[in-house]
């Protein structure tokens, strides 16, 4: 039943020093539909492809707002992501209560990283089966972090995780140098184009299957101002898709082109 003797649990090292259960959990991330994140000097954009279980069912949630300055995109087990994003919401609120300011992005990311690490070292727990892209802004500007089931968290300039995400990453690597100076609109465009790269041949981005979120920092009359987490979902993505991505032309953003993703 098992591939080998060393992959029964997350508290056993293989003779090579690997922990298979954690590696398998990382495979669960690749089962999820693709999500992309990228940062400029002023904004962070998260984009995601949503799936639906069957034609008449609703689409899954891929991007979660954690706070005004913080959001996550997920690939993998959505219920695990809910646990983590709820935890982040609590921590963010607690930080506001104790310190009277929004929690720094790196701090909350480290907190979920530490949590995930502990479930790779203690018997009876299982690693989280989800990868996250955490986008947010704080006093140091916009940030994007990748979180993986091993508990590893890394700050990225751009990132894509989930099924077929390699294509998106290739796109991101190719355009990496441009992102820093992108305007809000340009960054959204790159986010959607990277996402599109990862779609299967017969698929395209539609108002039904695309989610997008933006957070930013700007200045208004010389004062720093946070542009709060804004999610574009459903009909709201329509104009963004039209402006940035070639669609097969159902113009009004009708759902005709959508397909069941199984």
């Amino acid at each position: 039943m098992f591939r080998n003797n060393y992959d029964n649990d997350s508290v056993t090292f293989s003779p090579q020093g690997r922990i298979f259960q954690v590696e398998y959990a990382q495979e669960a991330v690749k089962q999820g539909s693709v999500v992309v994140g990228l940062v400029s000097k002023t904004h962070v954009v998260l984009t995601a492809v949503k799936r639906n279980a069957e034609e008449l069912s609703s689409y899954q949630k891929k991007i979660v707002g954690v706070d005004d300055h913080l959001g996550v995109a997920l690939a993998g087990l959505a219920s695990d992501a809910r646990v983590l994003s709820n935890f982040m919401k609590q921590q963010s609120l607690a930080s506001k209560l104790s310190y009277g300011r929004p929690i720094p992005v790196e701090r909350v990311v480290n907190m979920i990283g530490d949590r995930a690490q502990s479930s790779t070292q203690h018997y009876g727990k299982r690693p989280y089966g989800v990868g996250l892209l955490v986008g947010g802004v704080d006093d140091l500007g916009p940030h994007l972090f990748e979180f993986s089931p091993s508990g590893l968290t890394q700050e990225m300039l751009a990132c894509a995780i989930g099924a077929r995400s390699q294509m998106a990453r290739t796109y991101l690597e190719r355009h990496l140098d441009k992102f820093a100076d992108c305007s809000r609109e340009e960054l959204i465009k790159h986010g959607l184009l990277a996402l599109k790269e990862s779609l299967a041949q017969d698929k395209e981005l539609t108002v039904d299957n695309t989610s997008l979120a933006v957070i930013g920092v700007g200045s208004k009359e010389g004062k720093r101002r946070v542009e709060n987490f804004k999610m574009y979902d459903g009909q709201e993505v329509g104009p963004l898709l039209e402006a940035n991505v070639e669609t097969s032309g159902t113009g009004e953003g009708e759902g005709d082109a959508m397909e069941t993703d199984s």
Partner: peptide, 22 residues
């Protein structure tokens, strides 16, 4: 070598040795 805290007959804890490999 399948469980931590177990000695082999020659007195080694292989799981620790595997951790060193990491």
């Amino acid at each position: 070598d399948l469980s931590n805290s177990v000695f082999s007959p020659d007195g080694r804890n292989f799981q620790v040795e595997y951790a060193v490999k990491a």
